[in-house]
Structures are given as C-alpha cells and as structure tokens.
Design a protein around this nucleic acid. Sequence first.
DNA 1: CTGTTAGCGCTTTCAG
DNA 2: CTGAAAGCGCTAACAG
Lengths: 337, 337
Amino acid sequence: MKITINDVAKLAGVSKATVSRVINNPETVSENLRSKILEVIDTTNYRPSKVAQALSNKRTNIIGIIIPDFTNPVFSKIIVGIEDVFKETEYDFLMTSTNFAVKTEIKQIKMFDEKNVDGLVILTDQINDELRAVLENFTKPIIIIGSDAGLEKIPVVKIDNYRAAFEVVSYLLNLGHEKIVMITGDMKDKFSGELRFDGYVSALKRKGLKVQREFVYSSKYSSKDGYKAMTKILTRTVVPTAVFCVNDKVAIGVLKCCHDNQILVPEDISVVGFDDIEIASLYNPTLSTVSQPFMEKGRAAAENMLKMINGKEVQREIVLDHELIIRQTTAKIKRKK
Amino acid sequence: MKITINDVAKLAGVSKATVSRVINNPETVSENLRSKILEVIDTTNYRPSKVAQALSNKRTNIIGIIIPDFTNPVFSKIIVGIEDVFKETEYDFLMTSTNFAVKTEIKQIKMFDEKNVDGLVILTDQINDELRAVLENFTKPIIIIGSDAGLEKIPVVKIDNYRAAFEVVSYLLNLGHEKIVMITGDMKDKFSGELRFDGYVSALKRKGLKVQREFVYSSKYSSKDGYKAMTKILTRTVVPTAVFCVNDKVAIGVLKCCHDNQILVPEDISVVGFDDIEIASLYNPTLSTVSQPFMEKGRAAAENMLKMINGKEVQREIVLDHELIIRQTTAKIKRKK
DNA sequence: CTGTTAGCGCTTTCAG
DNA sequence: CTGAAAGCGCTAACAG
C-alpha cells in the first residue's frame, strides 16, 4: 500500500491540510511543524499522488503531443525541442503517432481530452472539417506545428513552405534546368505538401514554363516511394534533368534509384530534398536541400504552450526561417540531352 | 464547464450510481433506464473523466515509456511496435527520453510513479545500483527492453548482442581480415555495448588474435562520433582492413569519412554496422550489418505488459533473433598491405 | 498558524 | 434493478 497524505498527517500528529500546506505553500506553516512534517515525508518517502492532485486542481501536468510518425527524424527533433523547454518543469507528455491518418488524430485528441491533458501540441498538415471542429471544441490550449489550419484561435508554428519551394525551383531554373520533376507528398495533404507544390508551380510559371502532368509524382514521404517514383520516371521518354522532392527521405530513395541505374547525380540529374535531416549531409553524394529549424519549432511551440497554460497571450503565428542548402546533388545543366 | 456524471444523472432522472453502471456494466441496468441514460450521454456528449476514474480505480490507463533518444530510429521503431499492440485499447503512453543519462532515467521513473502509470517500459542498456533500486521499488509492472539488468523479477526483451557481434567478427575473420577495429559505444554502457564488445573480443581470441588497444575506439552512438573515430584511425600507422561499428549510425559516419578521404569501401576497408536501420540499405554503398527485429521487440514487450497488467505471469526473458546482413561494405581481403 | 469540512468526478458496497 | 453513502488522495475555503 502506498503512503498517503493521511498517513503523513497521522505520523506527524497534524491534520492533512497542514501537510498539504507544507507541500504547496511551505511558508504558511510554522517552522516547527514544517520541519517535523518534512521529516516524516522524508522518512516515509511520501510523494503526493498526481492523480488526486489533478482531480482537485484540474491540472494534470500532462501535455498531449500528436505526431504523424515516430520514425521520421523530422518529428523526433521537434519532440526533442519541446522536451528541452519543459525539462525543468513537472510536466510529462502523453505522445501518440497517427501515421498521417486524420481519423486517428481525432480519436487521440478525444482520448487526451478525457485524460485531461493541460494542453495539446499537434504536428499535422492535414486538417479537414471534422478535425477542425474537434480542435475548436477542445477546452485546453492547443498549438499546431506545421500547417496553418486557418483556425482563428489556434496559434501555429511553421515555416514558409511555399516560399522555400519557390526558392528551390528558382535555383534549379537558374542552373539551367527546365525539365524539373516534383515528387510531392500525399496529394490529400492540404498544407505543407500542397504549399511546396504551389511554390514549385509558381516558380515555373514565373519563368513562363508550364507544369506538366507527367512531371508530377506523389509519395507518402518515404524513401521507398521516392525510389518507386524515380523508377517510373526513368522509364518515361522525357527524362527530367532535375528532381525536387517533397522531403529528404524521398530524395534519398531517388538517389538510391539513380545509383542502382547508373544515373550520375548531379551530372545526369540534379536532386533536391527538403528538411535537411541528418543523413542529407552524410549521404554520398551529399544532398542539396532546404533546412528548417526543427528543434526551434519544438521550442517555440513549447514556450507558447507554457504561456498559454499560464493564461498569457501568444502570437497567433510564428514563422521560422528556412535555408536553401546547396550540396553535391545539384549542378548546372551541361547541355540539352 | 465540462459535463459530469452528476449532470447526466440529473438529466436522466436517476442516481449517478446508475449512470456509472451503464458505463461500466450496462447489462446490470434495465433496458428502460439504460437507453434513457445512453441518450442523455449521447446528446450531452458526456465523457467520463479518466482522472476521476483513475483515482477511484487505481488505474490510469497510462503506460510510461522511457527511451534514450527519440531521434534514433532504432528506438522509434520499438515505440511503433508497442503502439501497435495497444492500438485498440484505452491505453496511452507517457513518453520521455533520457539522452542516455541514468540520472534522468531515475528522475523520470519517479515522475511516472507519481503520475500513477499502470506500467513502465524502459529501453536501457545502462543499469547501475541506484537505478536497480528504483526499479525494484517500483510498484507497477516493468518491462525492460535491451539489456539484462540481472533483476530477478523484471522481464526483459532482448537479442543476443554477444552472439551477434561474435558472428560479425568471425565473418570478417573468414574473409581474411585480421586487423579489425571496433568502434564501441560509450564504455560506461554496461550492456548491449559491452556485450557487443565482448563478442568482438572472443571472436578474435578464438582465432588466436589479441585485442589491441589501438584498435578499440569509443563513440556515443552517433554518426559524428563515427566520423571522428575514423578520422583518428586513418592517421595511425597501422590502418585496419575492417571496422566493426557498434551501430549503423556510427558506421554511416565511418563510411562518410572514408569517402571524404578517398578510401574505397570495401576495396580498402570493410565496414560493418549494427541494427539495420533504414538507411543501411539505402546508403551508397549499402551497409553490411546485423538486423534485429525492433518492431517485434516493441510488440513482445507490449504483449507482456498487457499480460502483467492483467495479473498474468510472463516469461522472464525473451530473446529475439538477429541476422547478419551482408551487403556491399564487406569483401574478402585482397592482399596484405 | 492550524484544523474542520466540503468537494473534485467516479466507483462500489450495502440496503431496499 | 436502483439509490444512498462512503471513499479514492488531495486542495481550499472557512473558522478559530
């Protein structure tokens, strides 16, 4: 049997209210009793039950975190950033992954709600009407990392995906590429994927180029899908001179596929990824990509969450900087093939 | 204000006991009242507070998970395995990473204890006396993934690290290599790191070879450390013909370093990793390594946890299979240099 | 400064 | 089958 506040009270010969006081407002208790109680607490190794405290306080000291996928370092780093900010607090995190399924997101939000989390951090790029409704009905502070859900009241931390993609494609265009394929994310994905695609489209347009249907492929953000898409691309009559991938994982798959088919990168084809995950700078060749500050995203979100929990106002939108990182997978086009 | 069981009771014109019954044992309530209450629950969108239930039931429906590092896919996959088993249950996970610090592990275990988790899954390879004590005093079911802590009562899920390392080195020996370096993990790491090192040592010994001091390097399991170690190795007068790395991340760093220094793999040096993370088969060249069933580890742990929570007995030790995966980074030695 | 009391939301005897 | 009442462990007025 675990020791409770009652046990401590009895052992110290005081009421449990007093014990509660030394736990929460030690200064309101006389030196005398306080040290006595503290001693009992120490010898009995008493720890207040957070569950009981939660019921009484309406505060669980738990934050819910919902991410699409634990195995993508992109999301893991955000978690690390969040953890970092909360390191010295009493907070813990209820975490769950959704595998990009909105249905699962909704289910989990409800679970977290029932478990009375004090706040919710959700990393998502797909927000449909149902999810929007659930989010709006959530009674505790929420912060979204990733996409602008267009929810008036919910603060967002993000980067400018549109702009970043636009820069990538403009860069490729400047290198002389015109046949630029994009391997996008899931087309159902309403936000970062779509915005990156939009950036691709408008960069082409500005150059007077049309987006060609057979130059757009989709993926589920995995290396396997990147490999598959590239395999398909290589069978086409018109082979592109550059491939812009929705993320680095896809790009790695593309690179691998090129290597397996004796296609030289960047000599034959230039490849650009997105995210700058660790492997981007370790791969052979090193991958040109867009870096974004994941840890910082987590930190910003966490700091905002902390503020919201304490009833303070926060910025509705935080846009962090991205950066085009040029490495070995991109080069000037040599001649028209 | 959130709706409570009392509200529902009033609206349905019954006592809260009855409402509680239809939630937990619907069959004990008359058809009549039941449907009435169900309707109220439905229209009010009432959800029982898990916190209140927890206080009453002494069950939070929360499992604590402690891992060293979210950014290592090795651990993430285990999480995915665990999640998978619990998918259809009411359980959620309080997760935290420790960055391999025993101190943090201990702190978090205590936090989780206070928060009344129903069980604890801990992925760790370093167990010192203090941690051992904390673990032994934990009142709820625990399951360890990774290392045999030598704790009588705590079930463990693991692979045979010693045997796997022994096989790797024997394989290298059979290819004709004799100058085999090992880049180990943190030497403070008592278990998987140490066991892999032990396997290395005894494979060499069996061949009548001595372990040479200057052939053993340590790392903190990161690519950066692998790169650093390899840089050092290349400055030595005696350059090895093979490098066995404690994990794939380190191996990737080694590979990158070789490439940056015009060392050909496997022509000049063979490299072997451990874990078979996704990038191992995507890297260029593809990495020879030991694969281990991470998802399965998570699943096995989760299944055991579920059993323990329900008071059933479980195996004290589950040893999963590993497999030596030979890819492009290893080759027969050509000639003595 | 300290103790008494009520209550957080739910479950569970115990009567009826 | 249903309701009243006690209790889970803690906090927070309210008196004294």
